[in-house]
């Protein structure tokens, strides 16, 4: 058979972060997690709908102050994360490191606040279905913040050791994407856990 070459890829980029399969992979991973988030929220409303009182008699909906602060912190961390990758694009290592560190700081604060909040919940997960779903969603979000922190810490270490440059930034791009998701996931959870029992 007569074989001819019509495409030569020798000069093509080997990194191309924004269309790299890994970027797409993480995007679909996020879709999976998004489905999980929806399933939790649907479960919450399903249990709420079939309950006589929500939260059960004698229990107040959780206080609003600290979760709202968390919301602000999480949204802010998305900005600092964006700033970090902006720095990387301009090969500004200082901005990259500062951005990553600030984001980590925000998330760690959130983690601490959430921990405190959990201590103050006036009910246990084993008390009733309401307690179960609130604790489960809280725990789910908590673990995700924790894993985003660990992942970003790894990226930070690599950044400090000078691994990244505008050409080689796949790990940062992917980590940022995941970070956005984890932070933004708080919005629906926040509305569900703190506003739904008040408004609905």
């Amino acid at each position: 058979m007569d074989t001819r070459s019509t495409v030569d890829v020798a000069g093509f980029s080997r990194f191309a972060a924004n269309r790299h399969p890994l970027w797409w992979g993480v995007l679909w991973l996020i879709m999976i997690e998004l489905t999980v988030v929806s399933a939790f929220i649907v479960s919450y409303f399903y249990l709420m709908r079939s309950a006589e009182a929500w939260p059960p008699a004698g229990i107040e909906p959780p206080p609003l102050l600290w979760p709202s602060v968390n919301l602000a912190l999480l949204l802010a961390s998305m900005v600092t994360m964006w700033w970090a990758s902006w720095g990387l694009n301009r090969d500004n290592r200082a901005v990259l490191i500062a951005g990553l560190s600030l984001s980590l700081l925000f998330h760690c604060t959130v983690l601490a606040l959430r921990w405190r909040e959990m201590q103050l919940f006036g009910f246990k997960w084993s008390d009733h279905a309401y307690g179960s779903i609130v604790w489960t969603i809280t725990g789910f979000h908590f673990t995700h913040i924790a894993s985003a922190i660990v992942g970003t810490a790894v990226v930070l270490v690599l950044a400090i050791r000078g691994y990244f440059n505008p050409e080689r930034q796949l790990a940062v791009v992917v980590d940022t994407l995941y970070w956005y998701f984890v932070s933004a996931a708080w919005v629906p959870f926040y509305l569900t856990l703190y506003w739904a029992p008040r408004l609905l």
Partner: peptide
């Protein structure tokens, strides 16, 4: 851990 998602007596829902 004894959550109550499916325990009717504690507000759980088998149909969930």
């Amino acid at each position: 851990v004894d959550t109550k998602f499916f325990i009717v007596e504690a507000g759980g829902e088998p149909l969930l």
